[in-house]
């Protein structure tokens, strides 16, 4: 771990996103990196494949840490649309708010958002775990296939619309449930998963027992004329 002692910095006032990404994607990159002056630029730290520790020191634009594999990325500010989209593994931690489509289609790893997430958080998620300390916007968990979405605050309209096998946990209020989403009984397995996720996300002030669990009613799994209006 001694390699991480050296502080590696990329300042976007003097460098470019292209240099940043090609440096972090290169096979030689190791250890910890800090990105200065991100100022809402897009595609920061995307396509990483090594277990780097990357700190984005400020606001990130679209697709920060997109398609992440193995890296641990911390955004010390807000993140734009599609943060950690299609993440495979590793972790992304947004200390501020995240815009729409946070964690879209992500297949693995952990996305933690300390603030609120916008519309369609976890859209089409495919295995990722997402923990939002604040609230999520409308259509969150839309078509969510698998993985876990934990919301410590409230959820907007149409939570979990058309979802498949993803688990949704909400502590606050749910404005409305989307088509084919229903409240489920919290099983011991659910509770264990939730506890682990809260712990991993460093959330100690909300007990797992204070959440409700939502999931697919599985009425849309095979076409049935009586459900036609839900399509």
């Amino acid at each position: 771990m001694s390699a991480t002692l050296e502080k590696q910095v990329i300042d976007l006032h003097t460098s470019t996103v292209r240099v940043l990404n090609s440096t972090l994607q290169s096979e030689d990159a190791t250890g910890a990196w800090t990105i200065l002056h991100p100022e809402g630029r897009h595609s920061l730290a995307v396509g990483l494949t090594a277990p780097l520790d990357v700190t984005i020191d400020g606001q990130a634009g679209y697709y920060a840490a997109g398609m992440n594999q193995r890296a641990n990325v911390v955004i010390k500010g807000n993140a734009g649309p599609g943060v950690a989209e299609n993440m495979m593994s590793g972790s992304v931690h947004v200390e501020g708010n995240a815009s729409m489509a946070a964690g879209a289609t992500a297949q693995g790893g952990l996305l933690v958002i300390d603030g609120d997430a916008g519309a369609r958080c976890g859209i089409s998620m495919k295995g990722v775990s997402i923990v939002v300390r604040g609230s999520v916007g409308h259509m969150s968990g839309f078509m969510a296939q698998s993985g876990n979405l934990v919301v410590c605050g409230d959820a907007g309209e149409a939570l979990g619309d058309s979802l498949y096998e993803a688990r949704l946990f909400v502590r606050g209020t749910v404005k409305s449930l989307g088509a084919d989403c229903e409240e489920k009984k919290m099983t011991d397995e659910d509770l264990a998963i939730l506890k682990d996720l809260l712990k991993e996300a460093g959330i100690t002030d909300y007990p797992a027992e204070s959440f409700r669990r939502y999931g697919s009613a599985r009425r849309l799994y095979n076409f049935n004329v009586d459900n036609a209006s839900a399509y």
Binding site: E39, G40, G80
Partner: peptide
């Protein structure tokens, strides 16, 4: 439309 536009505003941090 995007945060980038705010980057130069006074006290934006």
């Amino acid at each position: 439309s995007e945060y980038r536009a705010f980057a130069g505003l006074p006290g934006i941090e």
